[in-house]
């Protein structure tokens, strides 16, 4: 096994990400479709997550492909905003594409795409096995396909995981992302509002595309403050949180330097990153997706 202390100058290989259409031309169907999602394809920050996850898929030798230009919005933001007509148009278009290729299994790094395809496509004729990348990464770690060695060490770094609503409450996936983070051997700390009590980042329900309604504060600021207070152990800030049963907390003080807010959703990524910038902590605290952390720990970024 590669020793973690001396990163060996490994060769790098350029990837040609296979598309389902290319495979179909060769008479093949990928075992698993990597559904990239609009944020994964267009958002500059989340493209890095897509690239990290593609590296992992290549690294473990997954038989995968993407739809490429044939992929279209799942319709999630339209449906949450009440535009059921547009949602169903998008859904049926995607279902026609995927059924045409004989897709059976889908992995995606977006909880919104995950929820929509898994739960709302079946009623419209699209039945697939859909897994979120946090579950997929957990499986790779459990199977020993990813050893989380040979790359960056996260030992002792403070990491807090921000639950995505569409992964957590919407689909009851709380442990998979935590299991992935636990494999990093980092110093994991939980926010008070976590798991089923997790506080939304503020982007769901199509809020991502509109200004928030008038209020006292933006939701992502409220959530980022909680994350930062959790990472730094600021007791006063933690005591005043709303929406939780208040209990005295006596956390020890920590430096924020090198701390990480881990996310598993492109919109949470945007909201938490903006929040960290708003709090002027971007030089100390980084926001990473699970796939990025795994790819870094595995040392496969090139």
């Amino acid at each position: 096994m590669t020793p973690t202390s001396s990163p060996t100058p490994t060769a790098k290989r350029q990837l040609t990400v296979p598309t389902v259409a290319d495979l179909a031309a060769q008479g093949k169907v990928p075992e698993i479709l990597f559904w990239v999602g609009c944020a994964g394809a267009f958002d500059d920050r989340y493209k890095r997550v897509t690239r990290a996850f593609a590296r992992i898929l290549e690294h473990v030798g997954t038989d995968y492909a993407v739809l490429g230009l044939e992929e279209s919005c799942t319709g999630d933001p339209a449906k949450r905003a009440g535009n059921e007509f547009l949602f169903q148009m998008q859904a049926m278009q995607n279902i026609t594409t995927m059924n045409g290729y004989g897709i059976k299994k889908i992995v995606t790094a977006c909880p919104h795409c995950f929820n929509t395809i898994k739960n709302e496509y079946p009623a419209l004729g699209g039945e697939y096995e859909v897994i979120h990348h946090s579950t997929y990464l957990q499986q790779l770690i459990d199977e020993g396909k990813v050893g989380m060695t040979g790359g960056e060490s996260f030992k002792g770094r403070r990491i807090t995981f921000h639950d995505s609503c569409y992964l957590g409450r919407a689909n009851n996936i709380y442990e998979a992302p935590r299991d992935v983070l636990a494999a990093l051997d980092a110093d994991l700390v939980e926010m008070k509002r976590s798991r089923a009590n997790g506080l939304c980042c503020g982007a769901g329900g199509a809020q991502m595309w509109k200004e928030p309604e008038p209020g006292k504060k933006d939701i992502n600021i409220e959530r980022t403050e909680e994350a930062l207070a959790t990472l730094s152990g600021a007791a006063a800030a933690l005591d005043n949180l709303r929406g939780v049963e208040t209990e005295r907390s006596a956390p020890s003080e920590h430096s924020l330097q090198g701390a990480i807010i881990a996310v598993s959703c492109p919109f949470c990524m945007t909201m938490m990153s903006d929040g960290v910038k708003n709090k002027e902590q971007e030089s100390a605290v980084q926001v990473f997706d699970l796939a990025e952390l795994v790819a870094s720990a595995e040392g496969i970024n090139a």
Binding site: T2, K12, Q14, A41, A54, K145
Partner: peptide, 25 residues
């Protein structure tokens, strides 16, 4: 897509993508 991007750019994320050659665990 919910943003004003050209659909023809949808696979641009895969440009110039490299992976370090390393045996899987």
């Amino acid at each position: 897509a919910p943003w004003a991007f050209s659909p023809s750019d949808r696979l641009n994320w895969a440009d110039e993508l490299y992976v370090a050659e390393k045996a899987a665990a």
